[in-house]
Protein backbone atom coordinates (compact mmCIF):
# COMPACT_ATOMS: atom_id res chain seq x y z
CA UNK A 1 0.00 0.00 0.00
CA UNK A 2 1.43 3.36 -1.06
CA UNK A 3 -0.15 6.81 -1.04
CA UNK A 4 1.27 9.79 -2.91
CA UNK A 5 0.07 13.29 -2.11
CA UNK A 6 1.07 16.45 -3.94
CA UNK A 7 0.53 19.78 -2.19
CA UNK A 8 0.67 22.83 -4.37
CA UNK A 9 -0.03 26.54 -4.31
CA UNK A 10 1.67 29.95 -4.27
CA UNK A 11 4.91 30.31 -2.37
CA UNK A 12 3.95 31.46 1.14
CA UNK A 13 0.66 29.57 1.36
CA UNK A 14 2.38 26.97 3.52
CA UNK A 15 2.34 23.92 1.28
CA UNK A 16 5.86 22.80 2.26
CA UNK A 17 4.78 23.12 5.88
CA UNK A 18 1.74 20.86 5.64
CA UNK A 19 3.83 18.40 3.63
CA UNK A 20 6.32 18.26 6.48
CA UNK A 21 3.51 17.83 9.03
CA UNK A 22 2.09 14.92 7.06
CA UNK A 23 5.55 13.39 6.65
CA UNK A 24 6.39 13.67 10.35
CA UNK A 25 3.05 12.18 11.33
CA UNK A 26 3.71 9.25 8.97
CA UNK A 27 7.16 8.74 10.52
CA UNK A 28 5.59 8.88 13.98
CA UNK A 29 3.26 6.05 12.95
CA UNK A 30 6.21 3.99 11.80
CA UNK A 31 5.55 4.28 8.07
CA UNK A 32 8.06 4.74 5.28
CA UNK A 33 7.95 8.26 3.93
CA UNK A 34 9.63 10.72 1.56
CA UNK A 35 9.08 14.46 1.20
CA UNK A 36 10.34 16.06 -1.98
CA UNK A 37 9.96 19.80 -2.62
CA UNK A 38 9.97 21.67 -5.89
CA UNK A 39 13.05 23.85 -5.74
CA UNK A 40 13.36 24.78 -9.39
CA UNK A 41 12.30 27.79 -11.43
CA UNK A 42 8.64 27.30 -10.49
CA UNK A 43 9.47 27.94 -6.83
CA UNK A 44 11.13 31.21 -7.84
CA UNK A 45 8.03 33.20 -8.59
CA UNK A 46 5.28 30.72 -9.38
CA UNK A 47 3.74 27.73 -7.73
CA UNK A 48 5.51 25.84 -4.99
CA UNK A 49 4.77 22.20 -4.43
CA UNK A 50 5.95 19.19 -2.52
CA UNK A 51 5.28 15.50 -2.86
CA UNK A 52 4.84 13.21 0.12
CA UNK A 53 4.94 9.47 -0.44
CA UNK A 54 3.81 7.21 2.41
CA UNK A 55 4.08 3.45 2.23
CA UNK A 56 4.24 0.19 4.14
CA UNK A 57 7.30 -0.79 2.11
CA UNK A 58 10.41 1.38 1.52
CA UNK A 59 9.56 4.12 -0.94
CA UNK A 60 11.00 3.64 -4.44
CA UNK A 61 10.68 6.77 -6.52
CA UNK A 62 10.19 9.93 -4.45
CA UNK A 63 9.24 11.63 -7.69
CA UNK A 64 5.62 11.03 -8.66
CA UNK A 65 4.02 11.66 -12.03
CA UNK A 66 0.61 10.13 -11.30
CA UNK A 67 -0.23 10.93 -7.68
CA UNK A 68 -3.11 9.49 -5.69
CA UNK A 69 -4.09 12.80 -4.12
CA UNK A 70 -3.55 16.51 -4.66
CA UNK A 71 -4.16 19.40 -2.28
CA UNK A 72 -4.37 22.52 -4.43
CA UNK A 73 -4.49 26.06 -3.07
CA UNK A 74 -4.34 28.11 -6.27
CA UNK A 75 -5.73 27.77 -9.77
CA UNK A 76 -2.44 27.04 -11.62
CA UNK A 77 -1.98 24.08 -9.26
CA UNK A 78 -5.41 22.68 -10.03
CA UNK A 79 -4.77 23.05 -13.75
CA UNK A 80 -1.43 21.30 -13.44
CA UNK A 81 -2.17 18.45 -11.05
CA UNK A 82 -5.85 17.50 -11.53
CA UNK A 83 -5.12 15.91 -14.93
CA UNK A 84 -2.26 13.88 -13.42
CA UNK A 85 -4.29 12.20 -10.64
CA UNK A 86 -4.89 8.47 -10.76
CA UNK A 87 -8.44 7.22 -11.34
CA UNK A 88 -10.53 7.37 -8.13
CA UNK A 89 -7.91 9.69 -6.62
CA UNK A 90 -8.61 12.63 -4.33
CA UNK A 91 -8.51 16.35 -5.15
CA UNK A 92 -8.87 18.87 -2.34
CA UNK A 93 -9.58 22.34 -3.72
CA UNK A 94 -9.27 25.70 -1.95
CA UNK A 95 -12.50 27.23 -3.25
CA UNK A 96 -11.73 30.69 -1.82
CA UNK A 97 -8.97 31.01 -4.39
CA UNK A 98 -10.13 28.66 -7.14
CA UNK A 99 -13.46 29.43 -8.84
CA UNK A 100 -13.15 26.67 -11.44
CA UNK A 101 -13.69 22.92 -11.15
CA UNK A 102 -11.71 20.07 -12.59
CA UNK A 103 -13.60 18.48 -15.48
CA UNK A 104 -12.62 15.02 -14.32
CA UNK A 105 -15.49 12.79 -13.27
CA UNK A 106 -13.36 9.81 -12.28
CA UNK A 107 -11.83 11.39 -9.17
CA UNK A 108 -13.22 12.45 -5.81
CA UNK A 109 -13.20 16.24 -5.62
CA UNK A 110 -13.72 18.09 -2.33
CA UNK A 111 -14.02 21.87 -2.33
CA UNK A 112 -13.48 23.87 0.83
CA UNK A 113 -13.29 27.63 1.53
CA UNK A 114 -9.96 27.30 3.24
CA UNK A 115 -8.92 30.97 3.34
CA UNK A 116 -12.39 32.14 4.45
CA UNK A 117 -12.64 29.53 7.17
CA UNK A 118 -9.14 30.27 8.44
CA UNK A 119 -9.88 34.04 8.45
CA UNK A 120 -13.10 33.46 10.37
CA UNK A 121 -11.15 31.45 12.90
CA UNK A 122 -8.61 34.18 13.42
CA UNK A 123 -5.68 33.58 11.08
CA UNK A 124 -5.95 33.41 7.32
CA UNK A 125 -2.42 32.05 7.16
CA UNK A 126 -3.72 28.81 8.64
CA UNK A 127 -5.68 28.06 5.46
CA UNK A 128 -3.07 25.38 4.69
CA UNK A 129 -4.08 23.54 7.87
CA UNK A 130 -7.76 23.63 6.82
CA UNK A 131 -6.69 21.99 3.55
CA UNK A 132 -4.59 19.32 5.24
CA UNK A 133 -7.39 18.66 7.72
CA UNK A 134 -9.86 18.19 4.87
CA UNK A 135 -7.57 15.71 3.15
CA UNK A 136 -7.06 13.67 6.35
CA UNK A 137 -10.82 13.82 6.91
CA UNK A 138 -11.37 12.21 3.51
CA UNK A 139 -8.64 9.63 3.93
CA UNK A 140 -7.14 9.08 7.33
CA UNK A 141 -3.72 7.84 6.16
CA UNK A 142 -2.40 9.12 9.47
CA UNK A 143 -4.64 9.63 12.46
CA UNK A 144 -6.08 13.00 13.48
CA UNK A 145 -4.34 12.57 16.82
CA UNK A 146 -0.87 11.97 15.38
CA UNK A 147 -1.25 14.99 13.15
CA UNK A 148 -2.21 17.18 16.11
CA UNK A 149 0.95 15.99 17.88
CA UNK A 150 2.95 16.85 14.76
CA UNK A 151 1.48 20.37 14.82
CA UNK A 152 2.40 20.79 18.48
CA UNK A 153 5.95 19.67 17.74
CA UNK A 154 6.37 21.85 14.67
CA UNK A 155 5.20 24.98 16.48
CA UNK A 156 6.95 24.24 19.78
CA UNK A 157 8.91 27.47 19.42
CA UNK A 158 5.93 29.54 18.22
CA UNK A 159 3.42 28.37 20.79
CA UNK A 160 0.87 31.09 20.04
CA UNK A 161 0.14 29.46 16.67
CA UNK A 162 -0.54 25.99 18.06
CA UNK A 163 -4.10 26.68 19.07
CA UNK A 164 -5.29 28.25 15.82
CA UNK A 165 -3.53 25.59 13.75
CA UNK A 166 -5.08 22.82 15.81
CA UNK A 167 -8.52 24.38 15.37
CA UNK A 168 -8.25 25.07 11.64
CA UNK A 169 -6.90 21.59 11.02
CA UNK A 170 -9.75 20.04 12.98
CA UNK A 171 -12.32 22.25 11.19
CA UNK A 172 -11.18 21.00 7.77
CA UNK A 173 -11.04 17.46 9.10
CA UNK A 174 -14.58 17.52 10.51
CA UNK A 175 -16.17 19.14 7.46
CA UNK A 176 -14.58 16.60 5.13
CA UNK A 177 -15.40 13.70 7.41
CA UNK A 178 -19.06 14.78 7.40
CA UNK A 179 -18.91 15.22 3.63
CA UNK A 180 -19.87 18.91 3.97
CA UNK A 181 -18.05 20.76 1.30
CA UNK A 182 -19.03 24.19 2.75
CA UNK A 183 -18.41 25.68 -0.68
Amino acid sequence: MQTEVIMSGFGGQGLMMIGKLLASAALEEGKNVTWLPSYGPEMRGGTANCTVVIGDKPVGSPLITSPWAAIVMNQPSLEKFAPMLRKDGILVVNSTMIPINSDRTDIRCFRIRADDLASEMGNRRSANLVMLGAYIGLEEIVSHKTLITAIEHAFAEKKKFIDVNRKTFTKGYELAKAGKSDD
Binding site: K20, V33, T34, W35, L36, Y39, P62, L63
Partner: peptide
Protein backbone atom coordinates in the same frame (compact mmCIF):
# COMPACT_ATOMS: atom_id res chain seq x y z
CA UNK B 1 21.80 14.40 -7.31
CA UNK B 2 19.64 17.36 -6.34
CA UNK B 3 16.90 15.05 -5.03
CA UNK B 4 19.24 13.54 -2.43
CA UNK B 5 20.03 17.05 -1.23
CA UNK B 6 16.47 18.35 -1.18
CA UNK B 7 14.44 15.31 -0.13
CA UNK B 8 13.38 14.65 3.47
CA UNK B 9 13.42 11.07 4.75
CA UNK B 10 13.53 9.46 8.17
Amino acid sequence: DGMIGQMMEP
